[in-house]
Design a protein around this nucleic acid. Structure first.
Lengths: 310, 310
DNA sequence: ATCGATCATGCATCTATTGTGCACGGTTAT
DNA sequence: ATAACCGTGCACAATAGATGCATGATCGAT
């Protein structure tokens, strides 16, 4: 309902370049350029200035973008209230999420929605957390499921988003099936301190989670191997190369030679899974229903494993 | 910046029929119909129902329209602030007003703006007060100058408009030049109680002003003739057919055989001239400038006449 | 300093949206 | 019953808007 050109401007304010804006919004760079030019013309305002080989927001532009936060939120709020009052939902619904979250939570959600609301057009986009927020601003998606990290999570008071904790996804240990501890039901990180560890590449989303878990118990683990995907990591463990941490949400499938154990003791690492929506839209019936489904699904998976796993 | 289809819906909410909405917005009825249909489709909401040979807002529709008031006001407010911050003004500016107000106040304003801001596209629409408010909602005009009446003025708290009093335009008496009182500078209504009066048709905008003036002094005037335009009324007075009331803003031009006298005594009738804008836009530089010009112009005219007149 | 990469924008082209005009069906009032 | 009115569907036209490529400008690296 808000002029798409203003949305484009807001996306530009986030990413700073026309090309990136084009990529995020799904337009071509020319279209973004034309839209921004047209926006300035119709408002009679100079919003952009040349800056090197790129363009940059003017003070007026920044002012407009900042002020538009409440405008967008108000619209979302109004739309949500109208949906609720009319007992109807929108025709399109975009979901975004990262890796395991997307696979384990979003896919079932999308499937459920498709069956309960056949005429609803559901679209799922896999994207990392930062991009998810961009996609929310760009209105490509309406709901994002992300792993909360200091780097990507926004404050409670961010005027653009509203976030609700879905669950704290505990990290389990995966060890080779022939490992001495494999028959145990739970372990502590201290017991595994001297093991060779398999983790993600330093700087990746989950690596900081890994280090945080061990600094909590005062142990410095030895990193033997690095993997990018969970599947790879699991395979490494299965091959006896070491042990690793695996979020409970991540499925083991029926990997041979690998056992999942719960962690006990004072170091109980977990990653926080958060749902983010555009501010104001949280009361929308479809969002509410989706959050319920996600939460139910998440709790079921977390409480079920590892007993029922494999 | 707000989707024009929502504006169309808001206009429809005011006037109730597609045809009237089309006339007000400048679209064809088919276009309005298509816009409303499209709006419902994209929102996934049913906003209209068939009602006899017309259509009517659903509860959801009314809800949406009511809620959109603040949205529009927020946008106007933001735009005004951005204009102010950027020290720039919009490229188009629509003015609306009624009869003498339009002629005496808006025309000079438009002329001034045209000269001081050559690249600003100024448009003036003559329309009665009620229509002016419709045109404001339809965003055909941005500023309206109207004569305040209980019937057309809206409360201070109306979420759609903001109104500021420009001036109280006093009513003068016009009498034939050969009338015994013609050499006087001021008269009271009581002195003219027995004169044959010339007024507007009963039920017209100014007729109630006429009656209100006399009820205030407890006199029941004899209405001899009725005219629709000021010019006609002045001609009647010039022909010696009676006396009449003329707002000071209305020019006598250099009508032969007619004299304008100020009214003294406890019955000092006046009509209130009000400027109305969409809520939120009042702080816009262009609006502020226009209000200043209008006020100055109005005060000059009111204080100058009738001495400098003819 | 040169070359390549990146970025924004203008232009020609095409597409798709959107408005118009007319005709039709349904409803109300005379 | 007839006429007036209202809203809507359809064919057509106009306009807005997106694309892809080319261009110019800037920055970084060799």
């Amino acid at each position: 309902m808000i002029d798409p050109r203003l949305i484009t401007l807001r996306v530009f304010a986030r990413c700073g370049t026309v090309s990136a804006t084009a990529e995020l919004t799904g337009y071509s760079p020319s279209a973004v350029s034309a839209q921004l030019r047209e926006l300035q013309r119709v408002l009679g305002l100079q919003l952009l200035t040349k800056d090197g080989r790129g363009v940059r927001l003017t003070a007026t532009g920044r002012f407009l973008v900042a002020g538009s936060d409440t405008l967008i939120a108000d619209w979302e709020s109004l739309r949500a209230a109208a949906m609720e009052a009319g007992d109807q939902v929108q025709s399109r619904f975009g979901l975004g999420g990262f890796s395991t979250a997307a696979a384990q939570l979003l896919a079932p959600l999308a499937a459920t929605l498709r069956s309960t609301r056949p005429l609803l057009e559901v679209q799922v986009l896999e994207a990392n957390p930062a991009r998810c927020f961009d996609l929310l601003v760009a209105e490509r998606i309406d709901l994002a499921v992300i792993v909360a990290m200091q780097s990507n999570t926004y404050g409670e008071d961010d005027p653009r988003f509203e976030q609700t904790v879905l669950l704290d996804d505990p990290l389990d240990v995966i060890i080779p099936a022939d490992h001495p501890l494999a028959s145990r039901e739970t372990v502590t990180l201290e017991e595994l301190a001297s093991e060779p560890w398999i983790t993600e590449a330093a700087g990746s989303t989950y690596h900081s989670l890994f280090t945080a878990a061990f600094t909590a118990v005062g142990v410095t683990p030895r990193i033997a191997h690095e993997a990018v995907e969970w599947e790879t990591q699991i395979a490494f463990v299965g091959a006896g190369l070491g042990v690793g941490l695996l979020p409970r949400l991540a499925p083991l499938h029926s990997a041979e030679n690998v056992v999942r154990l719960r962690i006990t003791g004072k170091g109980k690492p977990a990653r926080r899974i958060v749902a983010a929506v555009r501010r104001g839209s949280i009361t929308s019936p479809l969002i509410q229903e989706s959050l319920g489904i996600l939460q139910m699904r998440a709790n079921k998976i977390v409480s079920a494993r590892p007993e029922d796993d494999l």
